[in-house]
């Protein structure tokens, strides 16, 4: 009667935490419907999809839909760009977010802090299409705002839209501008959650501002950083399509440094409208992402078991 006892124990536990479970329910339902129910859709990646026959009767073609990813010879470039951009976004992004939230938390004036946060937060809501127009009107060679400033002051403006080297910097800057305010919130909340008595004690012991930040705030933010990192690395193969596609568009002279898996797939699929290949790419990205998360988590577990996700 081992099994029965176990079930009884589970039921008892569920009854005990019924309020908590009830509160969780919307999230559970959400994930069941949005993440688990569509899972069989992955099957499309292995079919030659026929609209009329649908998911279950279309002919099976094995790995054929994955072939185009590797036969193009572009895979290495795409992987490199996608991963490097994501690493840059994650590292630079988190460091800047952390630094800014620490600075904000040290600001005494409430009003200033709130205004600054709102202004920083604002770009997050601007669509990538508008962002791309802003960037274009700032830096295009013929009549861009910055181009005119440079020329006005006697300089020679670089032809940025034909300079692949400039774009990693531009894209990272634009991404920072858009996401920093949003990311700061998490860190700011973590800082607010630090027990004030620790700070008090440090102050009494004579620690100055810098010392308190270095010895207390930053170490206390480490778990938050690790969790955000773990969440982010799962998407290491997923690029921000909106940002890249709108900023670069069809300007193929920049592709060597700006083409990511998403934009490449978009351009390939635009002509053939092949669901199966699209799903094949999605599946590939998810499987790799899953692997990376597992690897990172086990790495974290080995170094600092407390910070691991599971």
């Amino acid at each position: 009667m081992e099994a029965r006892a176990k079930i009884a124990w589970h039921v008892k536990k569920a009854a005990k935490y019924k309020t908590l479970l009830l509160m969780c329910l919307p999230a559970i339902i959400f994930f069941i419907f949005m993440s688990y129910v569509p899972l069989p859709g992955m099957w499309v990646a292995f079919l030659r999809f026929d609209y009329n026959k649908g998911l279950f009767k279309s002919p099976f073609v094995g790995w054929k839909n994955f072939e185009f990813l590797f036969t193009s010879g572009q895979m290495w470039l795409l992987l490199r760009n996608t991963i490097l951009y994501n690493v840059a976004f994650i590292l630079v992004g988190n460091v800047v977010q952390m630094a800014l939230s620490i600075l904000l938390s040290e600001v005494a004036s409430d009003r200033f802090r709130k205004t600054a946060q709102s202004i920083m937060f604002l770009p997050y809501f601007i669509s990538a299409v508008l962002v791309s127009l802003l960037v274009y009107n700032l830096i295009n060679y013929d009549y861009g705002f910055i181009s005119n400033l440079v020329r006005g002051s006697g300089g020679e403006m670089a032809k940025l839209y034909s300079m692949p080297k400039a774009w990693p910097v531009i894209i990272v800057l634009v991404n920072l501008w858009q996401t920093t305010g949003y990311g700061c919130i998490v860190y700011f909340a973590a800082i607010m959650g630090i027990d004030p008595s620790i700070m008090e004690a440090a102050r009494v012991d004579g620690a100055n501002g810098l010392q308190r930040i270095r010895r207390i705030t930053i170490p206390m933010l480490k778990p938050t950083f690790v969790i955000l990192l773990l969440f982010a690395v799962g998407g290491i193969l997923k690029g921000n399509f909106g940002l890249f596609y709108n900023l670069v568009g069809n300007n193929s002279s920049l592709f060597s440094t700006t083409d990511i898996i998403e934009t490449y797939v978009y351009r390939s699929m635009l002509n053939s409208f092949n669901f199966s290949q699209g799903s094949a790419v999605g599946l590939f990205q998810s499987v790799v992402g899953f692997g990376v998360v597992m690897a990172c988590n086990s790495l974290v577990k080995r170094i600092e078991p407390d910070y691991a996700l599971f």
Binding site: F68, S162, N250, N251, F255, R267, S268, N271, S272, Q277
Partner: peptide
């Protein structure tokens, strides 16, 4: 198009990468 669909996808991609540069004299 089934027998050459992989080739056509790759060709499309190459075309959309190189042709704009050729057409607008950017090389």
């Amino acid at each position: 198009l089934e027998p050459i669909s992989t080739e056509l996808d790759t060709i499309s991609n190459i075309y959309s990468t190189y042709m704009p540069i050729i057409v607008f004299g950017k090389s």
